[in-house]
């Protein structure tokens, strides 16, 4: 167990160095970002001064090494557009994105598992066909388009959900303002539903199919047959035996899917004007706000590493055959 954690820690450091190096190089080879931070009429001297001020006049490897040195002292640099500590900018946008990803994953799991089970139990029946058609289509629609369609239909035409925006829940919660956080919660969820569906539709659809196929597999297993033959009720069989094992692939996928869901978040946050990390980092890349991009990439990689660690631990618990 401890060697496992230690090995993971070492791998994480390598990953962090890798992701920062890649984003650093990518943003630098595109050309000198200085021009984005001087005004239109800036003279050559002014541009030179800005370049020196921003540190872009130093050789690339020096820039990167000094960045790594700063990061080791937990200094993530100052955002070039906001002129505030880059990590603060990212962390301020993080709670909204966590709400969105988490809610869309929860939605995807809560809806997909019963759908998958029903589908498996009624295999080959119209119910199964209907659910699987729905899932197939859900997996095939580009999510920005789904978002716009939902805005037009459920937002504008039916007025069921707010068209765009966000009411914070996690941020007041983290700040210790519980009254405000829980007061906001109903509104938060109301605002979250459409973006969460747009982000999670693919995951939902795929998980439904995943649950169905692993259920089918498990239902064929000897121990399930044995349980059935012992006269244990069908519900018990499903809940205690089949479901427990059908979980495994879903859990695995959640770890792998994080980066994937985050990709959806960039697009969906733009459509629903949702103030999260996805939009922030997209703008930061466009603006060449390198410190913000770097800080965001580090945060995202850390979450990814942590999530996969948790998934592995859960996996080890769920499946006794797995040893860490």
């Amino acid at each position: 167990m401890w060697t496992f954690l230690l090995r993971r820690l070492l791998q994480s450091v390598i990953v962090l160095i890798g992701v920062t190096l890649i984003s650093f190089v990518a943003l630098q080879i595109g050309g000198d970002p200085t021009y984005l931070f001087v005004s239109e009429n800036a003279s050559t001297e002014e541009i030179e001064r800005a370049r020196a001020l921003l540190g872009f006049d130093r050789p690339l490897h020096i820039q990167y090494l000094s960045y790594v040195w700063d990061v080791m002292r937990l200094d993530f640099g100052t955002s070039l557009t906001f002129r505030q500590p880059a990590m603060d900018v990212v962390l301020a946008a993080l709670p909204a994105s966590i709400e969105l990803t988490l809610f869309s994953l929860i939605l995807a799991i809560v809806i997909s598992i019963p759908l998958g089970i029903v589908s498996a139990l009624y295999r080959g029946k119209p119910v199964d066909g209907g659910i699987m058609t729905f899932a197939m289509i859900g997996q095939s629609i580009p999510n920005f388009w789904m978002g716009i369609m939902m805005i037009m239909f459920f937002g504008l035409y039916l007025s069921w959900f707010p068209i765009s925006g966000h009411v914070p829940f996690l941020r007041p919660l983290f700040q210790g303002d519980f009254a405000r956080a829980f007061g906001n919660l109903p509104q938060t969820l109301h605002y979250l539903i459409m973006p969460a569906i747009a982000v999670g539709s693919y995951t939902l659809a795929r998980n439904a199919r995943l649950v169905r196929s692993s259920m089918l597999e498990v239902l064929q297993q000897d121990y399930v047959r044995t349980a059935r033959s012992k006269g244990i009720s069908e519900t018990r069989v499903i809940v205690h035996h089949a479901l427990r094992n059908a979980w495994l692939p879903v859990v695995t996928m959640i770890g792998l899917e994080f980066g994937f869901v985050l990709g959806g978040v960039v697009v969906v946050e733009t459509v629903f004007s949702y103030p999260g990390v996805g939009r922030l980092v997209f703008n930061a890349i466009n603006q060449r706000d390198i410190p913000v991009v770097q800080a965001a990439v580090i945060v995202i990689a850390l979450i990814f590493i942590l999530l996969n660690l948790i998934v592995d631990l859960i996996y080890a618990r769920l499946d006794p055959r797995v040893k860490l």
């Binding site: 716009i148 805005i151 037009m152 937002g155 504008l156 007025s159 707010p162 068209i163 765009s164 925006g165 733009t270 459509v271 629903f272 004007s273 103030p275 939009r279």
Partner: peptide, 18 residues
């Protein structure tokens, strides 16, 4: 002042009266 990057979303909010 609300920030709404996507133009069709801006127009939808206007039509909805928000």
């Amino acid at each position: 002042f609300r920030i709404i990057p996507e133009s069709s979303t801006r127009t939808a909010e206007l039509l909805a009266g928000n």
